[in-house]
Simulated assay, not measured.
Amino acid sequence: MFKPFKSIRGPALCAALIAVSAAAMIPVSASAADLKKDLKIAFLPKQINNPYEVIADDGGLAAIKEMGGQGKVVGPSDAGASSQVQYINTLITQRQDAIVIAANDANAVVPYLKKAMAQGVKVVTFDSDTAPDGRQIFVNQANSEGIGRGQVQLMSKLIGGEGEFAILSATPNATNQNTWIKWMEEELKKPEYSKMKLVKIAYGNDDDQKSFVETQGLLQAYPNLKGIISPTTVGIAAAARYISTSPAKGKVEVTGLGTPNQMRAFIKNGTVKAFQLWDPGQLGYLAAYAAANLASGTITGKEGDSFDAGKLGKRTVGKSGEVVLGPPTTFDSSNIDNFNF
């Protein structure tokens, strides 16, 4: 006969349960030394040829090299809602340790990312999130509310707090764009913006030529337009390029989110007075470290977990698995030459 296990009772049982419960509630804190070597981490941008995405992906690849892993970038040439699906399936087959994705659509890729996670692939979204059940961590460039409200505040300064303005967004399904626009609209409800009017939200689909044509259409449709906010690096550059050679130069203010290198000429020639952004290279770098820590098992992505992110220092996972890079910088003629990205 088998002897029954000796049961644990009384104080001993209570102590054991308390110890287990306490251990489960203690947030994980990881250092770079805890990372596995030779991790395979793939970056999947919205578009493979998007200048902003290239900078972000390069930052991620630099981090992966720094930690002794194997990095790669794959992705579509268009920003369609389902254009990333085939790449996710391929990366699963290749048995990547982690996928870092800037999602073109909040929901279209979720079933495939769930499949990846079910097979042990860790998933990090960055720049543009999916629904929360499609990933373990979202690395956000900055607080979404702060970005959206900040764009309206900057436009208000540029046009003197009154007049018509438009938004030139990326794709209609872009999670990040839509979130920022929601907060722009919230900011506009404040009484100090009562003389400002949002007349149109246009979509350039993160395509240079379409964004250029959409800018032309906005100026034709709204002859009293005083400003355009384009919270996409492709859109702001295309809008500035159109206005720089049109009669609207000096009359219509262009702002939004762009990189210093692509916008420097427009600042210098007076087409654009100010715009904002964070360092996309650092965004990719942080996302790579988040992915590596997940794949190494040093964190799980729950709120309170913290990890070493190389040169960016220790970072902590917040609510809903969000890790925030930091606040955006406002670039103008006084500081743009201090930045090179």
Score class of each variant (00 low, 15 high):
residue 51 P to N: 09
residue 88 I to T: 15
residue 144 S to W: 03
residue 163 G to N: 10
residue 107 N to F: 09
residue 136 Q to H: 04
residue 72 K to L: 05
residue 65 K to Y: 04
residue 89 N to E: 15
residue 120 G to L: 10
residue 100 V to H: 06
residue 159 I to A: 14
residue 54 V to H: 04
residue 169 S to Q: 01
residue 84 Q to D: 04
residue 148 G to I: 05
residue 160 G to D: 13
residue 134 G to Y: 07
residue 114 K to I: 11
residue 141 Q to T: 01
residue 53 E to I: 05
residue 145 E to R: 11
residue 54 V to Q: 12
residue 150 G to C: 12
residue 89 N to G: 03
residue 64 I to E: 03
residue 61 L to D: 02
residue 99 I to A: 03
residue 139 V to K: 04
residue 152 V to F: 00
residue 65 K to V: 04
residue 78 D to W: 05
residue 161 G to Q: 07
residue 71 G to H: 04
residue 154 L to S: 02
residue 76 P to R: 05
residue 47 Q to K: 12
residue 136 Q to D: 01
residue 147 I to C: 00
residue 124 V to E: 10
residue 124 V to L: 10
residue 76 P to E: 07
residue 163 G to C: 12
residue 49 N to A: 08
residue 104 N to Q: 01
residue 101 I to F: 14
residue 106 A to M: 05
residue 101 I to H: 12
residue 160 G to R: 12
residue 169 S to M: 00
residue 117 M to W: 09
residue 50 N to D: 15
residue 168 L to Q: 03
residue 96 Q to S: 15
residue 128 S to K: 01
residue 100 V to A: 07
residue 41 I to K: 00
residue 50 N to S: 13
residue 41 I to Q: 03
residue 77 S to N: 08
residue 125 T to H: 10
residue 106 A to Y: 00
residue 83 S to G: 08
residue 47 Q to V: 09
residue 137 I to S: 09
residue 133 D to C: 11
residue 147 I to F: 04
residue 52 Y to N: 06
residue 87 Y to A: 09
residue 76 P to Y: 05
residue 83 S to K: 07
residue 156 S to N: 13
residue 114 K to A: 12
residue 149 R to D: 05
residue 65 K to S: 14
residue 62 A to C: 03
residue 161 G to P: 05
residue 67 M to L: 14
residue 157 K to F: 01
residue 160 G to K: 13
residue 144 S to R: 08
residue 47 Q to D: 03
residue 68 G to R: 05
residue 158 L to C: 06
residue 89 N to K: 14
residue 42 A to V: 15
residue 80 G to V: 04
residue 132 P to Q: 08
residue 101 I to E: 09
residue 109 V to A: 15
residue 84 Q to N: 05
residue 141 Q to M: 10
residue 61 L to Q: 12
residue 159 I to F: 12
residue 73 V to P: 03
residue 45 P to L: 04
residue 46 K to D: 01
residue 85 V to A: 07
residue 80 G to A: 09
residue 58 D to V: 02
residue 41 I to G: 02
residue 120 G to P: 04
residue 151 Q to E: 15
residue 91 L to M: 14
residue 43 F to E: 10
residue 160 G to M: 12
residue 124 V to D: 08
residue 93 T to C: 00
residue 154 L to R: 13
residue 127 D to H: 09
residue 42 A to N: 06
residue 143 N to K: 13
residue 84 Q to V: 01
residue 127 D to E: 11
residue 133 D to K: 09
residue 144 S to H: 09
residue 119 Q to W: 07
residue 126 F to G: 01
residue 107 N to H: 12
residue 93 T to W: 00
residue 169 S to N: 15
residue 89 N to F: 02
residue 170 A to H: 04
residue 62 A to T: 08
residue 69 G to D: 06
residue 97 D to P: 03
residue 121 V to M: 08
residue 168 L to S: 03
residue 165 F to N: 10
residue 96 Q to M: 15
residue 169 S to K: 00
residue 81 A to W: 01
residue 168 L to C: 04
residue 92 I to S: 11
residue 156 S to W: 01
residue 149 R to N: 07
residue 58 D to T: 13
